[in-house]
């Protein structure tokens, strides 16, 4: 009798696992097909295109070449790459330095207040990042809001040339990415056990020491995530440089954009994209190696 029950349970389990298999195939199919068709295949095409030859009138000749990669090493383009990394570096640094205290503040206040503050933080970008970028043109130009304000106060005698500089680009970038950087830092600070800080204090450490030895290391995953979330889009986001930067501040994103619009050099644009993707995947690899969670990048 006992054996019988065990047998029937076993049979039942087997039947169930067979059914589970079918249902899991059905459930996995859409995302698997989508990922293969619209993520893996495009990346493969990009790689393929980066080895093709540029033809006349923006056409593509299907002949294998390394020229597109060699082209990137030309000084003209290396300057752009260097410039991109400098702007992305300063943007990321400023965003983290400005955002961390804000994240800490939001993590400390009452739950409802923190919810409202988060919404207020994201709201301008939800409404439209682009239009707000344009507001910076109005604020920063030589007869604009900021200059009129400073002139009226007598702080400056002549209007400052703020627009179309790297300063304007970095300001715009910090504005665009600050909210996205605050969120992961906020969630890692919120998870922090306040008892640990108490313990550090009780053991005689001052607030500065407690911050650098306890708080900062424990919230570093959030900071890492914020760095990735700022640095990556910063390099590819051509609109900010387009609107706020002068002709001199070009970034890799602008360069790629050009290859698909004015310059019509698809293979070179593909090679640039591949290099950019490789550099960023390397950064992400380092991020995960140091214990970073990819899931933190999406929330």
């Amino acid at each position: 009798m006992k054996n019988n029950t065990a047998d029937s349970v076993k049979k039942h389990k087997e039947k169930r696992s067979a059914k589970a298999k079918i249902s899991s195939v059905v459930m996995c199919a859409p995302i698997t097909i989508w990922s293969v068709l619209f993520i893996l295949l495009p990346v493969a095409m990009l790689l393929f295109m980066s080895f093709m030859t540029k033809g006349p009138l923006g056409r593509v000749l299907y002949q294998f070449t390394f020229d597109n990669y060699a082209e990137i090493l030309k000084p003209v383009y290396l300057v752009v790459v260097k410039q991109s990394f400098i702007i992305a570096f300063w943007t990321t640094l400023l965003t983290i330095l400005l955002g961390y205290p804000l994240a800490a503040f939001i993590a400390r206040v009452k739950k409802k207040t923190s919810g409202v503050l988060t919404v207020l933080l994201m709201l301008p970008l939800w409404v439209s990042g682009l239009v707000i970028l344009y507001s910076f043109v109005v604020i920063l130009n030589s007869s604009g809001t900021l200059n009129s304000f400073l002139l009226a106060l007598g702080i400056i005698k002549e209007p400052l040339e703020l627009l179309y500089t790297n300063f304007a680009v970095i300001l715009g970038m910090v504005y665009m990415f600050l909210p996205f950087a605050v969120l992961p830092m906020y969630s890692s600070i919120e998870k922090l056990d306040p008892g640990l800080m108490e313990a550090s204090k009780d053991l005689g450490a001052g607030p500065v020491k407690t911050f650098f030895k306890v708080t900062l290391p424990l919230t570093s995953p959030g900071i890492f995530a914020a760095v990735i979330l700022t640095f990556i889009p910063c390099i590819g986001y051509y609109m900010v440089t387009d609107m706020l930067g002068g002709g001199t501040s070009m970034m890799v994103g602008n360069l790629i954009y050009r290859q698909y619009t004015i310059a019509r050099n698809w293979p070179f644009g593909a090679a640039l994209s591949i290099i950019l993707a490789m550099i960023i995947l390397l950064m992400v690899f380092i991020y995960t190696r140091f214990g970073g969670d990819l899931d933190d990048l999406g929330a």
Partner: peptide, 9 residues
Amino acid sequence: VIPEIVLAV
């Protein structure tokens, strides 16, 4: 993780 412009292209 990859810049939007790379995905777009």
